[in-house]
Design a protein around this nucleic acid. Sequence first.
DNA 1: GTCGGAAAATACATCGGATGACTCCTTGTC
DNA 2: GACAAGGAGTCATCCGATGTATTTTCCGAC
Lengths: 240, 240
Amino acid sequence: MPVTDEAIVRIKEMILGGELAPGAKLPKEADLAERLGLSRNSLREAVKALSLIRVLDVRQGDGTYVTSLEPELLLDTLAFVVDFHRDDTVLHFLQVRRILEPEATALAARAMTEQQVGALGELLAALPDDASLDELLANDLEFHRLIAAGSGNPVLVSLLDGISAPTTRARIWRGLTEEGAAARTREQHRAIHSALAHRDADLARALALAHVCGVEQWLRDTLGDAGAALAPPSSGARQH
Amino acid sequence: MPVTDEAIVRIKEMILGGELAPGAKLPKEADLAERLGLSRNSLREAVKALSLIRVLDVRQGDGTYVTSLEPELLLDTLAFVVDFHRDDTVLHFLQVRRILEPEATALAARAMTEQQVGALGELLAALPDDASLDELLANDLEFHRLIAAGSGNPVLVSLLDGISAPTTRARIWRGLTEEGAAARTREQHRAIHSALAHRDADLARALALAHVCGVEQWLRDTLGDAGAALAPPSSGARQH
DNA sequence: GTCGGAAAATACATCGGATGACTCCTTGTC
DNA sequence: GACAAGGAGTCATCCGATGTATTTTCCGAC
């Protein structure tokens, strides 16, 4: 095994073994390199890799620290990784979201505080009628993020956040191509918010499912029509 | 932004932009470094980071390649990241698994081929009555992996695979502490397999839910009893 | 005594070059 | 045609030097 990979494992073990607690500062590069028996350059490769996945936090002029290792931090990596997926796997992500989102919404109906429900309502109210596509999208993402957060499960939040990224593009297309999608989305959001406010978990679940399926169905139809353009992995999707 | 981070972004863009297709070979270190305007050492840090998350595949003496970028490959990273989570977030992972696993099982009931169902049956039959704990665990993991694979959704497979890792430890404890857990698990597995063989999606879903909840309930009780030992994030769980 | 700023100390950032190890392909032999 | 030796190409690893950012220390002004 390359020394760098071994260093990654060693550092991982130091963290899992409790030697390096979350937030702890690592020995300086030179010391740690000597201790692990490799050069600073090789160690830096290991640190950089662990830094990309948010396990370590390097601050120039200060030192290298273990992050808090919170789920939301580590699963940030998911979003980065998911970015690399091609358009032809969007449906698979959407299918997973279709499973998670309704349950998250149902959980939120039971667990959200009055304050959180209020914030959700304010978010919807803050969206102007003539909102731009960017505003619509940002509002939509924040809406679902707040609900996920309301479930009280940070793992669920991060997972949904991560797999929502690729479906975002799908929603962009939809906004661009389908008339009335924005208005319909707003209506659905209001209905979900209402269900949450009434603590009606079953209704909230059903509405969330319908909401997600709306995008899914639209995408399925679109792929069915012009699916030939997306089927071969070699051809990129043509937009606008 | 550090040159290394910029290199990561640049390489990512090269891949997303189609300049580097899955499986493509990157220019050699020296050339790519010159092209990106940084030193080989810095480039190596970027490559190492992208290599850790399975976007690049470095082969000594040969070259550096873009991986296939398949979902199951990229989401492998999830397992690595999840490893860093502490025991006190196991319940959150389990809760997500409780959402995903039943639906995956229901999907599998509809989508699995006869051959896949047969392989699942053989897996169960292959487990000896006096199986060791390791054998039980390996069999259990493979059982659920096959079902997830049967859903036909690679994203679902990888996600379940990733979040199952931390719950594995929970099952270990259970196997160690609770009498009859192994026999009960086997019964539940057989029941799920039977439901899949009969293409009964609803039953399969229900059985899977009960199966996952069994672990969850046990863990909840255990944490309730000896929860004090797990509650403070500073104290690790004492095993052996 | 306190505040502000300059200087020193600390630690990471980046570089270029040298050497070793591994893989693959060519070539020559049997 | 099979096989082994050799060479070219490429990554692995190290070293040492220099640049840059942050923190800390210290000293003078008020």
